[in-house]
């Protein structure tokens, strides 16, 4: 009885830890959103011209992919808690694949822009209006740091997938998967805001 009590896993405490990390992430991305808001207010026309050069189709496909990956991630946690480890690991694998697809599309978008000479400090970019230079600067920094978060998420989920397969993550001990899911959903929330700011501004 006592042993069982001592061995009880503190899911609540572990979850609080990842939430505190996510609060710091809110302010980390928040600083960039603040810059975006101020510069868009100052250079509204330039920002509209910059956004017109974005590929709405690719941006929308990526949004669908990321929203769906959040869905499979949520299902994978529910599966583990219901004792279905195999199903959970398959859902985690699907999440990783969608994360990689997101990054592949991001690669296409970036290389398309770079081919047109639109990259930070490029001669083509520097000839544009000041607001457009700022728009592309923010685009690369914000989608780049977001993409880095997606990449880190894929790596972490790969570790979780392994742990689930070998049974270290199971019905009783699922905190690491839960925390990974919370991080992944947060990255999804950031994209939910990035999407209208960069692709729907016309």
């Amino acid at each position: 009885m006592l042993k069982a009590e001592m061995g009880r896993i503190d899911h609540e405490g572990k979850k609080m830890g990842i939430w505190f990390f996510l609060f710091t992430e809110i302010l980390f991305f928040g600083g960039m959103f603040l810059l975006y808001a101020i510069f868009r207010y100052r250079y509204a026309d330039d920002f509209h011209r910059g956004a017109a050069g974005e590929d709405l189709f690719l941006g929308t496909v990526n949004t669908v992919i990321l929203l769906t990956s959040s869905y499979t991630m949520a299902l994978s946690l529910a599966a583990v808690r219901a004792g279905k480890r195999l199903l959970s690991s398959r859902l985690q694998a699907a999440t990783i694949l969608m994360g990689l697809a997101f990054l592949a599309i991001k690669y296409l978008e970036w290389s398309g822009k770079i081919a047109r000479g639109l990259y930070p400090d490029s001669p083509v970019l520097l000839k544009l209006a000041k607001g457009e230079i700022l728009f592309y600067g923010l685009y690369y920094v914000m989608t780049g740091i977001h993409g880095l978060h997606v990449f880190i998420g894929c790596v972490v989920i790969a570790f979780m997938l392994f742990s689930t397969r070998v049974g270290r993550i199971n019905k009783e001990n699922y905190s690491r998967l839960e925390n990974t899911a919370l991080y992944w959903h947060f990255v999804d929330v950031v994209w939910i805001y990035l999407y209208p700011l960069f692709y729907l501004l016309t």
Partner: peptide, 13 residues
């Protein structure tokens, strides 16, 4: 976007 974020927070998270 905020409604979408709210749904993700409320249910997925």
């Amino acid at each position: 976007a905020s409604v979408k974020a709210g749904l993700v927070l409320a249910f997925f998270m």
